[in-house]
């Protein structure tokens, strides 16, 4: 049915907003509270897209991406970094880690849907 998305963010309000928005747009959303949990969840289920925050306790977004890219199942699954910084340094780091793209925070729900549609339809 709906494409399934893993949303990784340590902020409950952002997670709720992302889930709510994407579920409203017909996607299936699974949440994780940090990179470590995100990685665990990614290992137990297959996602079509992963949205991750950068700054999180336990495991940050870039580390999560690197770990995911090391998994055969996630070698090419799109991963977007939700970040407050969209500077060149972040972009270089994101690219190096294997992210597919970025979305600057704060963003509004509409933009999120737009970008997600762009990535996985």
């Amino acid at each position: 049915m709906g494409k399934s998305i893993l949303s990784v963010d340590d902020s409950a309000s952002i997670r709720q907003m992302v889930s709510f928005t994407l579920k409203g747009a017909g996607y299936t959303v699974t949440e994780a509270v940090d990179g470590a949990q995100g990685l665990e969840k990614a290992k137990t289920a297959k996602f079509d897209l992963i949205l991750t925050d950068q700054n999180m306790p336990n495991m940050d977004g870039l580390t999560l991406i690197r770990n995911l890219r090391a998994l055969p199942a996630y070698r090419s699954v799109p991963i977007l970094v939700l970040t407050t910084e969209a500077g060149d340094a972040m972009k270089a780091q994101g690219k190096a880690a294997g992210a597919t793209g970025w979305l600057v925070k704060p963003f509004d729900p509409q933009k999120l849907i737009e970008v997600v549609k762009k990535v996985i339809g």
Partner: peptide
């Protein structure tokens, strides 16, 4: 300009899963 993007992709968009719908 790049600094200002609200989002971006490091790839060709047509390599995205949604490429066809895009």
């Amino acid at each position: 300009e790049d600094e200002e993007d609200a989002y971006g992709f490091f790839v060709d968009e047509d390599s995205l899963p949604a490429a066809q719908t895009i």
